[in-house]
Design a protein around this nucleic acid. Structure first.
Length: 513
RNA sequence: GGCCCGUUCGUCUAUCGGUUAGGACUUCAGAUUUUCAUUCUGGCAAGAGGGGUUCGACUCCCCUACGGGCUACCA
């Protein structure tokens, strides 16, 4: 029988998850759902010094916003609860596995103090050792259960002296494993250090914790960033020494998201510097009070964000680009994940949002616009707002641009495009607008067709080309030099409003000397 | 420095030994819109370099260069 596919996203709650983390979660989710399996959220809060309040809630809210449903995990609960490693420590499972490794001779106690470790590194560096680290050669000159007598070790343990448990990595052994994305990776064990498995505070490190939990939670595929590739061989060793190599999940190391200008992996600083969000949601640092911007607050549709993220390092194999979560799920596979890092392109992100904005119904957009209007104490009939959205949605990338581009549909403009006025406003155009106002006043029906017709007739009567006066008419009535169809706009605003605005412009705009 | 991973248009990518190397973003030009935006059409633009293997290499192998990651009692 096929094993049920189970993937987890296991972030450390040390701050907000940035878009790269969300992508890792997304790929895990897509694969799990593609194969009818489970998506689990686990909190890897083993570093108590770096714990940030609110970070866990943040990640849960981020996933929810993206439409990624958690089957089991923190908050959601499930058969393998608890899903927080700080709570799982109380179960004694990490210690149990560590003890097993010590018993089988694959791990050992180490009593070295931080100072002694620093001295060791300084010594190695001074001796120009190629790879200065706590390893098979160095450990024999350190304070641990390999160099101390059994009595000494027991005495230290009995005296509650602080200790860590380290993995006893063999010297000069070839470790090979198959990564779903990269294929065979071969590493010599001499390049790996004796990783700390259990810290002196009793907490496991990531190296032990994720393995124990992946086994306990029956995880079948472990998806994580490429930054974990160098320590993967050590993880293979742990599985091997635990006798669990056959139950080991398949690893998939994802290529990294890179900075747009090619300086390393994508970071919050890149976003600040280049002006785009790196987080899914706004985040306010509880310590400093600084707020980092998020895609949601920037006006991105979650579907656009997810779509954009999915296409960074993955493609469906054809030229399809616009895909919702269901389509992504039906097409996802690790075979189509690329091996190389992907530079993030903020412009393409904007393009994705534009695509999704246009897919929205006018009704849905009106609901968004109405919230903005309410902030300006404006209420308008829903049908009217729907009609306005229909006109202006082709001109924006984000919903929040609605107000800045379309406020004149609700209030008379107070600011006018001075560049156009400087170029077009003169006695001739003024006379034209005055005549047009009079003609509009007399119109029995005031719709797009009739206002356009009249606009042309009056121009012709005055011997003017429509091109000479059209933009001035737009500025006089909307304040802006460009915009949606002018006569459709007139149709919405109505005769009185338009005539008033033209007259106001004629009396307030100063003629050039 | 050491170790690991990678390398197709400026960017994201398709190609799984034989293609005029395709698409998208960006950009440019034209058309439409009596403006702007949209839309449409078209253009510019790529296999890092050097060796092999092969009838044939972007595709397989090696070296070099470049890029990235890791090198904590952080994940």
């Amino acid at each position: 029988m096929e094993k049920r596919v189970r993937l987890r996203y296991a972030p450390s709650p040390t701050g907000p998850q940035h878009m790269g983390g969300i992508r890792t979660a997304l790929f895990s989710y897509l694969y799990a759902k593609r194969h009818g399996g489970d998506f689990i959220l686990r909190s890897e809060d083993t570093d108590q010094t770096r714990f940030v309040p609110g970070a866990e809630e943040y990640i849960i809210e981020s996933l929810a916003w993206c439409g990624i449903k958690v089957d089991e995990g923190v908050i959601a609960g499930g058969p393998y609860a608890p899903y927080r490693q700080s709570e799982r420590k109380e179960l004694g499972i990490y210690k149990k596995y560590a003890d097993q490794l010590i018993a089988s001779g694959h791990a050992y106690y180490a009593f070295d103090t931080p100072t002694e470790l620093d001295e060791m590194r300084a010594r190695l560096e001074a001796a120009k050792v190629v790879a200065p680290q706590y390893n098979s050669t160095v450990r024999m000159s350190m304070k641990n259960s390999l160099t101390l007598s059994e009595d000494e070790v027991n005495a230290k343990l009995a005296a509650n002296e602080p200790y860590v448990v380290r993995l006893k990595v063999p010297r000069n052994e070839e470790i090979r494993f198959s990564d779903i994305i990269r294929g065979w990776v071969v590493v010599n064990s001499s390049t790996i250090d004796d990783k700390v498995l259990l810290k002196s505070d009793g907490m496991p490190t990531y190296h032990l914790a994720h393995i124990v939990d992946d086994i306990e939670m029956k995880i079948t595929h472990a998806v994580r960033g490429e930054e974990w590739l160098p320590s993967a061989p050590a993880h293979i060793l742990v599985y091997r020494y635990l006798g669990l190599e056959n139950e080991m999940p398949l690893y998939a190391h994802l290529p990294l998201l890179l900075s747009p200008d090619g300086k390393g992996k994508l970071s919050k600083r890149d976003g600040d510097r280049l002006g785009f969000p790196t987080f899914p949601l706004n985040w306010t640092d509880p310590k400093t009070g600084d707020t980092s911007s998020g895609y949601r607050e920037q006006g991105y549709f979650p579907e656009a964000f997810v779509n954009m993220l999915a296409l960074m390092g993955w493609n469906p194999g054809d030229n399809t680009e616009i895909m919702n979560l269901e389509e992504l799920t039906s097409k996802f596979s690790f075979e189509k994940v690329s091996k190389s890092g992907a530079k993030f392109d903020p412009k393409k992100a904007v393009w994705f949002n534009q695509q999704y904005l246009r897919m929205q119904t006018n009704d849905a957009l009106a609901l968004i616009f109405e919230k903005q209007l309410a902030q300006h104490n404006i209420t308008a009939p829903h049908e009217y707002v729907v009609a306005v959205c229909n006109l202006i949605k082709e001109k924006v990338n984000f919903p929040q641009e609605f107000w800045s581009i379309g406020s004149y549909y609700f209030v008379a403009p107070t600011e006018f495009d001075q560049a156009v006025i400087g170029k077009r406003w003169n006695a001739t155009t003024k006379a034209y607008l005055q005549a047009l106002a009079t003609a509009y006043e007399a119109l029995p029906t005031f719709d797009a067709a009739s206002t356009e017709q009249t606009f042309k007739e009056v121009a012709e009567a005055q011997g003017l080309k429509t091109g000479d006066v059209q933009q001035m008419l737009r500025v006089a009535t909307t304040g802006a030099g460009g915009g949606p169809s002018l006569f459709e706009t007139f149709n919405l605003l109505g005769k009185n409003e338009i005539v008033n605005r033209i007259n106001t412009a004629c009396t307030t705009f100063a003629l050039p000397q």
